[in-house]
Design a protein around this nucleic acid. Structure first.
Length: 300
DNA sequence: AATAAAGCCAACCGCGCAACC
DNA sequence: AGGTTGCGCGGTTGGCTTTAT
């Protein structure tokens, strides 16, 4: 009963692929195309699991893949989409021609999360870290000013001159408006009389309740050298969907197949908006996506 | 130059769902 | 109808490379 096993896992090679193995797989797929992956290793003369072959092809050998570094436009798009839909890497990758979900995921984990931290933004919620700390103070019964920096001050460990761009949905037809975060070094800070009441603040890592990252990716923010200033009056934060995949399914599926159809609409929207140029259209697409997610948020 | 720490990314793991028998 | 596997996905890890001390 059922399908036959794809391979004998105890007898297949694992680990890094050699150039020879790559050549065999490439030759096989180029000649015969992608069929049943479980049959590929045998036909291609590879001592690998079919699943391993599929991953090698989709993440590395596919001829349409880009192997160069991510462009600033791609970075923007990833950040915006991550804010909108979370870590749904396959959907995000579909918006980036030539990039795989693994590429996007790795780039996010190694570069973009740190970049957002540096800009004083929590990469999970995309809220200013100061706001999270403030909310945490409220939740834990602490007064907002108890060991918490003022709401427009965020500390970080590295220096940068890259402005933070956050898009908020204030549910008032201003979707897509941006706020610039001014990045100041300590030297700038203490030369700035207008901010003389602001003191550098030390705090430990801010963890998200739905962070699923391994501990090896902890970011230490205990030695602030840079202070970020957010606008004094932040617009309402973006309501975020549930964070784990199960909740996402519930989030979309909600009650019945009608919601499933809406999820398909979302995916259809993402696919239809795919473009090799992410300059102006990416922000437009993103704001459209926010509107979609909001319709679900408010339905619950 | 040697060693440790951090960065990076390819590959693996495990899960949910659909397909298959 | 129900057990099993294939596929696709997000999360995690191993190990190589780069950087710092």
């Amino acid at each position: 009963m059922g399908r036959p096993p794809c391979c004998d896992k105890s007898n297949v090679k694992r680990g890094l692929w050699t150039a020879e193995e790559d050549a065999k797989l490439l030759a096989h797929v180029s000649k015969l195309g992608i069929g049943n992956w479980t049959l590929v290793p045998k036909k291609a003369g590879l001592n690998r699991c079919g699943k391993s072959c599929r991953l090698r092809w989709t993440n590395y050998l596919r001829p349409d893949l880009k192997h160069d570094t991510f462009t600033p436009q791609e970075e923007d798009l990833i950040i915006n989409l991550h804010q909108a839909i979370g870590s749904r890497w396959s959907l995000i990758a579909k918006q980036l021609p030539g990039r795989t979900d693994n590429d996007v995921k790795n780039y996010w984990n190694t570069k973009l999360r740190k970049k957002l931290y540096t800009m004083g933004i929590d990469p999970v919620t995309h809220k200013p870290i100061s706001q999270i700390l403030s909310e945490f103070g409220n939740i834990s019964g602490l007064p907002n000013n108890h060991h918490i920096p003022s709401t427009n001050m965020i500390s970080s460990t590295t220096t940068t001159t890259t402005p933070a761009r956050i898009f908020y949905n204030n549910n008032n037809n201003n979707i897509g408006t941006s706020h610039q975060f001014q990045v100041m070094t300590n030297q700038n800070l203490f030369n700035n009389n207008n901010n003389s009441n602001v003191q550098p603040h030390f705090f430990n890592e801010v963890t998200s309740p739905c962070s699923s990252s391994s501990s090896s990716h902890v970011t230490d923010l205990s030695s602030p050298q840079v202070v970020l200033f957010a606008p004094p009056a932040l617009p309402p934060p973006l309501p975020l969907p549930p964070c784990n995949s199960n909740n996402w399914s519930e989030f979309f599926l909600g009650d019945n197949t009608e919601d499933q159809a809406k999820e398909n609409d979302l995916e259809g929207f993402l696919l239809s908006s795919s473009s090799s140029s992410h300059t102006n259209s990416s922000k437009l697409n993103y704001t459209k996506l926010i509107e979609v997610t909001f319709s679900y948020e408010f339905k619950m």
